[in-house]
Lab assay of single mutants.
Amino acid sequence: GPMASDKRPRTAFTAEQLQRLKAEFQTNRYLTEQRRQSLAQELGLNESQIKIWFQNKRAK
């Protein structure tokens, strides 16, 4: 629909990254900035991508 703007492409996470994020989520529903930074480095992701993933996951 018209609401779907092309400005922010959805990140396609790899299965491996998703597995890691899910495991982290089961341990911590809320990430500290430090955890998020190390996860971002570990997974080669953007911190904001991880932050948003957690927000979306909590919203469900």
Rank of each mutant, 00 (worst) to 15 (best):
N28W: 04
R10H: 14
Q37T: 11
M3D: 15
I52H: 11
R8N: 15
P9V: 06
Y30G: 04
A59V: 07
G44K: 10
A4L: 12
A23N: 08
Q49E: 08
Q19W: 07
Q41S: 09
K22M: 13
N46E: 12
T32D: 11
R10A: 14
E24G: 01
G44L: 05
R29V: 05
F54H: 01
R35P: 02
D6M: 02
A4G: 15
K7I: 12
I50D: 00
A4P: 15
L43A: 01
N28C: 12
Q55I: 10
K7A: 14
T14S: 07
G1C: 07
F13W: 08
Q37S: 10
A23K: 10
F25N: 01
T27V: 12
Y30K: 07
S38V: 14
Y30F: 09
N28I: 03
K7V: 13
I50G: 00
S38F: 10
F13Q: 01
Y30W: 12
R58L: 12
L21E: 00
Y30E: 07
K22F: 11
L45F: 02
E42G: 03
T14F: 02
F54P: 00
E47M: 05
F54K: 00
K51W: 14
W53Y: 07
G44Q: 07
L18Y: 08
F13D: 01
L31W: 04
K60L: 09
E47Q: 07
K7S: 13
E33H: 14
Q26F: 09
S48I: 14
F25S: 02
I52D: 06
G1M: 04
N46R: 10
T32S: 11
R36Q: 10
E24P: 00
A23W: 09
Q17D: 03
Q41G: 07
G44E: 05
L39A: 00
Y30D: 06
S48C: 14
G1Y: 07
Q49T: 12
N46Q: 13
T32L: 02
M3G: 15
E47S: 07
L21S: 00
L18I: 10
Q37P: 01
Q26D: 06
K57G: 05
N46M: 08
L43N: 01
A40K: 02
L21A: 00
E42S: 05
R58N: 08
Q17R: 02
A12Y: 13
L43E: 00
T27I: 14
A59E: 07
A40F: 02
A12V: 13
K22A: 10
T32R: 03
R58M: 07
L45M: 08
P2N: 15
A59H: 12
T11D: 10
L31F: 03
T14Y: 02
Q34V: 11
I52S: 09
Q34C: 07
A59Y: 07
Q37L: 11
K7Y: 06
L21Q: 00
E33C: 12
T11E: 12
A59G: 08
Q49I: 14
Q41T: 09
I50T: 01
L43Q: 01
R29N: 14
R36A: 14
F25A: 02
E47R: 03
L45W: 01
A4F: 14
R35V: 06
I52P: 01
I52G: 08
A23P: 00
Q26V: 08
E16G: 07
K57P: 03
N56G: 06
K51R: 11
Q26Y: 09
L21H: 00
N56K: 14
A12W: 15
G1W: 04
E42I: 05
G1T: 04
M3L: 13
S38W: 10
E42A: 06
T32C: 06
T14G: 03
N28Y: 04
N28V: 03
G1R: 03
N46L: 10
T11L: 12
Q34H: 08
A59K: 15
N28F: 03
T14M: 02
R58H: 06
G1S: 04
S5Y: 01
D6V: 05
I52W: 13
P2M: 06
I50C: 01
A23R: 09
T32P: 07
F54M: 03
T27G: 07
R20H: 04
K7E: 15
T14E: 02
R35H: 08
A15I: 09
Q34G: 09
S48Q: 13
L21V: 01
G44Y: 04
L31C: 05
Q49A: 14
N28S: 10
Q49D: 14
R8H: 14
A12N: 12
R29M: 07
Q17W: 01
T14D: 04
S5H: 04
G44A: 06
A12R: 14
N28K: 05
F54N: 01
Y30N: 08
A15H: 11
T32I: 03
A12S: 14
Y30Q: 07
A12C: 11
Q19K: 12
K51N: 11
Q19V: 11
E16M: 12
K7Q: 14
S5K: 05
G44P: 00
R29K: 09
G1I: 05
I50N: 00
F25R: 03
R35L: 08
E16R: 08
R29D: 06
R10P: 15
Q37E: 06
F54R: 00
S5Q: 08
L18R: 09
Q26M: 11
I50A: 00
A4W: 14
L31D: 11
K7P: 15
P2C: 15
E42W: 03
A15L: 09
Q37H: 11
F13S: 02
Q19Y: 07
L39G: 00
Q37F: 11
Q17L: 03
Q55N: 08
A40W: 01
S48V: 12
R58E: 05
E24Q: 02
S38N: 10
L43W: 03
A4S: 05
P2R: 09
D6C: 12
P9A: 06
Q55M: 13
G44I: 03
S38L: 13
R10Y: 13
N46T: 10
D6W: 00
P9N: 06
G44R: 06
Q26H: 09
R35W: 04
A4H: 14
L21K: 00
K60D: 07
S48D: 12
F25Y: 08
K57C: 07
A59S: 11
L18G: 03
W53T: 00
S48E: 14
Q41F: 09
L43H: 01
Y30R: 07
R58C: 06
K60M: 13
G44V: 04
N56W: 15
A12I: 11
W53L: 03
E16A: 13
A23I: 12
K7H: 13
K57I: 06
